[in-house]
Write a protein that binds this DNA or RNA. Structure first.
Length: 302
DNA sequence: CGTCAGGTAAAAA
DNA sequence: TTTTTACCTGAC
């Protein structure tokens, strides 16, 4: 089945958005299990011309399958209208040609997005995606032979932090702890975050809040600073006015708007939100990949 | 082997 | 309030 909205699936999958690791790819087919109406559904998605082609296995209606993928790949967003917006501004006008078809890759599981985003802090895309994939295989639920959902918060909060803690309980066991997934010092953050969402913070409330209220709330979670908070709000809860600002975005904004002057990341975030409004999330996404693909990144390193 | 990148938390200014 | 430092891990 084809969903008639332009997308570059490969680019979107591999763009390092912290909602989740890329789906398993084979011969241009991206495959993943997603929980829809509390039941596991295995999706196959592939590029068909400029559109998305898909099939699925599982106990779900065609309509719900379509709306699930439409959400995850943000297919209701009008890319051409966004490209018009970009082309009207000299600083941004080149971006759409370098990132044509790039879309938000939104969370299939809000909790997975939170832990992924915490894991991505001060980390490389390659490393955090491997950590999250390892966690799924170790403690998630297995479906359709080779696919795993992300473990529940109640599972992660009780995990051993490292080998030391694990061997206290079981002398010769190993590998059944968070640090074995390469998450490093983020392990205690992940455990505490899980505990908070189990005990005191209701995930379903976040999406109903205003952006400011949601930002303030999510910032109370350990391991969540301003950058991670904005990733969680953008990719996990669809707050499109979020402008996740890290060192790369700082360098790009500084290069494009402030003659290369060193601007504090906090100011970059404020600038992005004021300047781009509801397009802030998309502009951030396009800035990063434009810099990657145009060679700008090499030029402004350091 | 050492050096470095990269956000957050906690300490220090 | 803003600035500095320590933190795991893997790439180089």
């Amino acid at each position: 089945m084809i969903i008639k909205a332009p997308i570059d699936l490969q680019l979107t999958q591999m763009s390092g958005q912290t909602s989740q690791p890329p789906w398993a790819e084979s011969d241009g087919v991206f495959r993943e299990v997603v929980i829809v109406n509390e039941k596991p559904v295995l999706f196959d998605v592939r590029q068909s011309g400029e559109y998305l082609d898909f099939s699925f296995t599982g106990d779900v209606s065609k309509k719900d399958a379509v709306s699930t993928l439409t959400h995850i790949y943000d297919l209701d967003f009008d890319l051409n209208k966004f490209y018009k917006y970009l082309s009207n501004q000299p600083e941004l006008s080149e971006m759409s040609e370098f990132c044509n078809g790039l879309r938000l890759f939104l969370a299939k599981d809000e909790f997975e997005c939170i832990i992924s985003s915490i894991c991505s802090a001060n980390n490389s895309i390659k490393r955090w995606t491997k950590s999250i994939s390892d966690m799924k295989m170790k403690w998630g639920e297995n479906h359709f032979e080779n696919y795993w959902t992300f473990p529940d918060k109640s599972v992660i909060q009780d995990l051993f932090e490292d080998e030391d803690e694990e061997s206290l309980v079981c002398g010769k066991c190993s590998g059944n702890n968070l640090k074995s997934c390469g998450v490093g010092y983020r392990a205690p953050y992940m455990k505490k975050a899980s505990e908070i969402f189990t005990l005191e913070m209701d995930l379903s409330e976040i999406g109903k809040m205003s952006y400011d209220e949601a930002f303030e709330t999510i910032m109370k979670v350990p391991g969540v600073g301003p950058k991670v908070a904005d990733c969680i709000l953008l990719y996990g809860f669809n707050f499109r006015e979020a402008f996740p600002s890290d060192v790369w975005i700082k360098r790009i904004v500084s290069h494009l708007y402030f003659e290369g002057k060193d601007i504090p990341v906090s100011k970059v975030r404020e600038f992005g939100m004021e300047e781009f409004g509801n397009n802030a999330g998309y502009v951030q996404l396009y800035m990063f990949h434009y810099a990657r693909m145009s060679g700008l990144m090499e030029k402004i390193k350091r």
